[in-house]
């Protein structure tokens, strides 16, 4: 079972939901929590892990200047502008390379090979009994977030229950995080921003054919617009988390409400049960 936690808008509480959901289930079964918000991963802040670290590489072209005749074919082929052939050498712009391998294929002299280029790291740990935490970190200044997400998810492959924390937005990192998930929890807040961006995120889950349910976070009780939207789109509201200074304070300090405040562990366990039911899975 793979559940991905996402949202269009940032800061709605994806990490909070993912971390609490995982924590609420570990007494019942093993859980693997994967932080795929690799630009700004935060799940490790809840758990103080001592991780094993593995670097994430992409591949970039390496030019053998003895073989290269400066014919220019690679630079003309590359649609990303990652290669510029000048009169006396070939420039490689690592950050623009998508690692498609095209330059190697088109080079008539076989002068191009590939070498590793580090774009991030994956941290793997067991911070609590029953909990495995895998966090992807994009290197500062790099852009290939999907590459890091792929490695983080690959590390979890084969585990039973996997909960994935996605980045906000609706672009390629989100698609990568949602890819092959069984269910998506979309976290929103009851503001015009929250609703506007929720609708965009629903567009993504629909285009992927991914089943989804909603959690309303920081609710002050005026949730009618979001609830009407959910009814209209036939999306179940799985949970409503109210705004209170007490909850905000627990979270801001990096603690979990399912651990520190009564009742929440049961609520999140209930959310998981509903996810299973919506996916048609028996416990």
């Amino acid at each position: 079972m793979k559940i991905v936690v996402a949202s269009g808008k940032g800061g709605t509480g994806k990490s909070t939901v993912a971390a609490n959901l995982a924590y609420s289930l570990i007494e019942l079964q093993s859980v693997t929590l994967v932080d795929c918000d690799v630009e700004v991963p935060n799940l490790h802040l809840f758990f103080n892990p001592e991780p094993a670290i593995k670097e994430v590489f992409t591949i970039i072209p390496k030019i053998d200047s003895d073989l290269c005749t400066l014919c220019g074919d690679c630079g003309r082929f590359c649609r990303y502008g990652a290669l510029t052939v000048l009169k006396d050498r070939v420039l490689v712009f690592e950050k623009m390379c998508h690692a498609c391998g095209g330059c190697m294929i088109v080079c008539p002299e076989k002068a191009i090979s590939e070498c590793n280029y580090a774009v991030g790291r994956v941290e793997d740990s067991n911070p609590l009994p029953g909990l495995r935490l895998i966090s992807g970190f994009l290197k500062e200044g790099e852009v290939l977030a999907p590459r890091v997400i792929k490695d983080a998810k690959a590390a979890a492959e084969g585990d039973g229950l996997i909960i994935i924390d996605s980045s906000p937005g609706i672009a390629c990192p989100v698609i990568e995080a949602m890819d092959e998930a069984d269910f998506c929890i979309l976290v929103t807040e009851s503001t015009p921003f929250g609703l506007h961006d929720l609708d965009l995120a629903v567009g993504v889950t629909k285009s992927l054919g991914l089943k989804a349910g909603i959690i309303i976070n920081r609710s002050d009780g005026s949730d009618e617009d979001v609830r009407n939207y959910c009814r209209k789109m036939d999306l179940p509201v799985l949970l409503t988390i109210p705004f209170s200074r007490e909850i905000a304070s627990v979270q801001n300090r990096g603690d979990l409400i399912s651990e520190k405040l009564p009742g929440w562990k049961e609520q999140f366990a209930g959310v998981y049960k509903e996810c299973l039911e919506l996916c048609g899975v028996d416990e």
Binding site: G72, G75, R76, C78, R79, Y80, G81, A82, L83, T84, V85, L86, L91, F93, M96
Partner: peptide, 11 residues
């Protein structure tokens, strides 16, 4: 073209 046009134009 959508992207990467600068380095390609230089070539």
């Amino acid at each position: 073209e959508s992207g990467g046009v600068g380095p390609r134009a230089v070539q």
